[in-house]
């Protein structure tokens, strides 16, 4: 089982302390580090891809995950490019989780189209995309097929450096990421997106604010839809973010108690909801002891 950490970065003014924590987490064997997009206050990070790219060469193994990425404010094309650069700098450790449509005042289809586009852009060469919210290139006409499409063989090949001035119907996002396609997750709090993600092999993510019981229920629903659609479990990685603390009180959203209690709770959730990756949501760099958790809890999750 993988274990990562995430920060409520908006409550932590000292970014250097967070970067130091990423290094410590990398050394201690944590599997992932997540930074969410936020514009709440001056400490928040509105561009997590940039923040994580700054950490890429300071770490060796830890996965660097963008959380809560919105699609309404910024271009899907730029998103594909910036994640590719993060993936190159980190040699294949980039990943991205998208926010619900409700969290950004758009419709679910907008999120789904963006995910479909970026995954295609990373894994294929020249592509074209026609959707309700996204067209790539922008002059793609209404008679292009819906969704992603690829060029047909024209009987000859002319390399791009010999095109001259051109307005091609298909373009390639470059450079390509280090991995074939960085892992992509979406928040499944909304029914439409849960259904869509389960049917399309997009990994489910549930954040720290949903109660544990409700999160288990949602993950079970996701799995049922995916099973019905014939999708295999190995296609996706279910991620659950929780507030956790050795010695702290448990509540609807927090896992507490002794290290043994914590392990039991995590194991129980795993068996009920097929969770493959827990993310410890930390309020700030003083919130719990990274080393203690790594020593007392990690081994029991791996065993």
């Amino acid at each position: 089982m993988r274990v990562g950490i995430s920060y409520d970065i908006q409550t932590t003014a000292d970014w250097e302390a967070i970067l130091s924590d990423i290094e410590a987490a990398d050394t201690l064997g944590y599997d992932s580090f997540w930074v969410s997009e936020s514009r709440e206050n001056g400490s928040a990070c509105s561009v997590p891809a940039l923040f994580l790219t700054s950490a890429a060469r300071r770490t060796r193994n830890i996965q660097l995950r963008i959380g809560g990425r919105t699609v309404v404010i910024h271009s899907a094309i730029r998103l594909a490019e910036e994640v590719a650069v993060l993936d190159l700098f980190s040699r294949g450790r980039a990943g991205i989780a998208f926010a619900t449509s409700g969290a950004q005042s758009t419709v679910p289809g907008h999120v789904h189209e963006t995910i479909e586009f970026v995954r295609s852009a990373w894994s294929a060469d020249e592509i074209r995309y026609r959707g309700e919210h996204l067209r790539f290139p922008s002059h793609t006409s209404d008679d292009a097929p819906l969704g992603v499409s690829f060029p047909e063989w024209q009987g000859d090949y002319i390399p791009q450096w010999e095109w001259g001035p051109a307005m091609p119907d298909f373009l390639a996002i470059t450079p390509k990421p280090y991995a074939t396609a960085p892992p992509t997750y979406v928040d499944i709090s909304e029914d439409t997106t849960l259904e869509w993600a389960a049917n399309h092999g997009v990994s489910p993510f549930i954040g720290a604010d949903m109660t544990t019981d409700r999160a288990v229920e949602r993950m079970q629903q996701y799995r049922a839809v995916a099973d019905a659609a014939g999708r295999s479990r190995y296609e996706v990685e279910a991620v659950l973010e929780r507030r956790m603390g050795i010695g702290s009180e448990s509540d609807d959203c927090t896992l507490g108690g002794s290290a043994h209690d914590l392990v039991c709770a995590l194991r129980e959730i795993t068996s009920k909801a097929s969770i493959a990756h827990f993310v410890w949501r930390r309020g700030n760099t003083e919130d719990g002891d990274l080393t203690q958790f790594a020593v007392d809890v990690h081994p029991l999750l791996q065993a």
Partner: peptide, 22 residues
């Protein structure tokens, strides 16, 4: 530049963020 076959860097500020750390 974007969409150039040789992978020309399209994303300057994230790239500089890594340079900044070193």
């Amino acid at each position: 530049h974007s969409f150039w076959y040789d992978g020309y860097c399209p994303s300057l500020q994230p790239t500089l963020a890594s340079v900044a750390q070193h």
